[in-house]
Amino acid sequence: MRFFQELTKGFWKEIPPFRLVLGLCPALAVSDLCSKAIGMGLAVTFVLVCSNVLISAMRNVIPPKVRIAMFIIIVATFVVIVEMVTHAFVYPLYQQLGIFIPLIVVNCIPLGRAEAFANKNGVMLSFADGLGLGLGYTIALFVLAAIREVLAVGTIYGYQVMASSFKPFLFAKEAPGAFVFLGILLGLMNLASSKK
């Protein structure tokens, strides 16, 4: 049951970017549209799962003194693979995400999980950890993006949900709006868990 625990902790207990306040920069930048948020979330999930599995499989042969450098090589390799694959096969998404795909390399989530989890746990558990946190990140981005997209464009994932008389609230689309809505969500989450 440990597997299941490691998988589900990413959905609420340790959901990035809210609980582990990591990976904020891309979270703010790509959460203006749901389609971008999901694409970014899945890209991060792929990198997290692959790097977690590989690092945990290699944890006994990685010399401790150079582990960070080796983690970065592994993470960077998978990020470049993601970048090339999206460029080749999902071009519109590649154009929308732009610089934020290569920036996954310096995103603290994959590196953080490598150091804090995959380096100390078995392959299956690391797989669950990567998948859980990656999907949690996707969910978090989607929720933030849904709120911003509804307010700024009146749609969710491109589907019209607001009446045509709806006046777009453009602040939600801009970077400051991203901070405000991230803050509100973070506050609500803390409120919800403090009552337990």
Binding site: V61, I62, V66, A69, M70, I73, T77, M84, H87, A88
Partner: peptide, 27 residues
């Protein structure tokens, strides 16, 4: 360890590049 990992990563990426080069251009 570092050398081996870099070499493997380099070869892997160049293989990926060869595979995705044409699709990227066509896309």
């Amino acid at each position: 360890a570092l050398t081996l990992l870099s070499v493997i990563s380099g070869f892997g990426l160049s293989a990926m590049y060869a595979v995705t080069k044409e699709p990227i251009k066509m896309a």
